[in-house]
Design a protein around this nucleic acid. Structure first.
Lengths: 231, 231
DNA sequence: TTAAATTATTGTCCAAATTACAATAATTAG
DNA sequence: CTAATTATTGTAATTTGGACAATAATTTAA
């Protein structure tokens, strides 16, 4: 009987894929690159690449994201690992996906390395992507929705100063349902927000007050176990 | 400048690690094996091994678990991927962890292949494990606790027929706090349980009624969106 | 300057859930 | 038959949640 030797296993590669979500004009979007190399040349894809043999996973995710899109200093979190034997046409490649939420307007993106283009694409209008990336993306979006319900990640997507309506609309988009304004405000009663004197600009009606998330107070409350985020 | 070629990357291996949780005598336990080979010979470890080059991840998890412990037909779910460059002393090995919850008494375990022994070990009494397995285990336990709050996985751990107190005690153990009996029963009011005529045996006091989880009704209610599990 | 239009913000009422605690019921052990 | 023990159910006060209404602040157009 053929006995597989230890080194026969060392014939695979790992990649990372970085799913970056943003929010603008009332829509959640993902940052995609246009592949300027084979395989899947000219198709849109989640930014990702192979991991160096001596590189840590998270470090690789940061490097790859920077090389392809110019984004740096983004806190990324591991989500899932995809490893169907034939998901990569050139060999066995298992990919570990990382994801992050950012404020689109706070960062500038620029395609480089083998990325021919980079764009924010609305989740509602997603083209066919390279590899199994449509699957990875939708599966990661489900994780995002879970986090929106249980962690204050909404403030990573919203602008630093936001109106309570913008806050509400983000949840209405993600969960595809309308909420009552008065009740939404009651629900967020315990989330520490800083009310600013500043108001919304350039609107054709009574401008709303701007708020920002009081992260420090929130974190004090959670280490105390005196509060848990629930939406 | 040295240019890394595509094939330079194909020098790594993947493994799967299977974290199997069980519950008995009021404690949550994990199934461990004693390594009968280098590295870390004679240390306890999470059952796991390298993935074949053409094998799907989940398939590998099932095979490895069976080979080492004799367990089969266990529904396993992916949790996290660990890939620090030096986590394996013999080369770059990234490991994908899977986990499952089972009823200890419903299965027989038996060490085989290179597992010298197999044992259920209480989480409260965990020795130093091989590789980064203590880290993997505690990180997976956090995921289990999250699931206990949001999915009816408690019934995978409890015996098929259980008393309401046993049900409550599982949560009291996992979250290390006591709950009021009457209020616990109100909280679980919407979880479909089947009440049996049968009662607890061999106790020195009034025996409690036995219940089992009505999975079918639960699933009908969740596809309807008429109920979501929350503890 | 003013009224209409529009949206922001706050309040009220009722139903439902949560909490703390008490009362009652069913067993076993002697 | 009684005490001890635990199971099970009930109550009352409080808090939360949802539907809906009222009021406030601003812009626009006459």
């Amino acid at each position: 009987m053929y006995r597989i030797e230890f080194n026969d296993f060392f014939t695979s590669a790992f990649s990372v894929d970085c799913i970056i979500f943003g929010y603008s004009h009332g829509e959640i979007k993902a940052l995609l690159i246009k592949r300027a190399m084979e395989p899947f040349e000219n198709l849109w894809a989640i930014p990702g690449d192979l991991i160096y043999p001596d590189e840590d996973l998270e470090e690789a995710a940061e490097r790859v994201l920077f090389e392809l899109t110019g984004l740096k200093q983004i806190a990324m979190h591991q989500s899932q690992t995809f490893g169907k034997p034939n998901r990569h046409p050139q060999g066995r490649v298992i990919t570990v996906s990382y994801f992050a939420l950012i404020r689109i307007d706070d960062f500038e993106v620029k395609a480089s390395s083998w990325a021919g283009d980079v764009q924010w694409v609305s989740l509602e209008n997603m083209p066919a992507l390279a590899f199994d990336h449509n699957h990875i993306l939708s599966s990661t979006y489900e994780i995002l929705k879970l986090k929106l319900q249980n962690e204050p990640v909404c403030f990573d997507l919203l602008p630093e100063r936001f109106t309570l309506n913008e806050f509400q609309q983000l949840y209405e988009f993600a969960f595809d349902q309308a909420f009552d304004k008065a009740n939404f405000r009651k629900k967020i009663k315990y989330i520490p927000l800083i009310a600013h004197d500043e108001k919304q600009q350039n609107v054709k009606h009574r401008p709303a007050k701007l708020f920002s998330f009081d992260k420090k107070t929130f974190e004090e409350a959670t280490v105390n176990n005196s509060y848990t985020f629930k939406m």
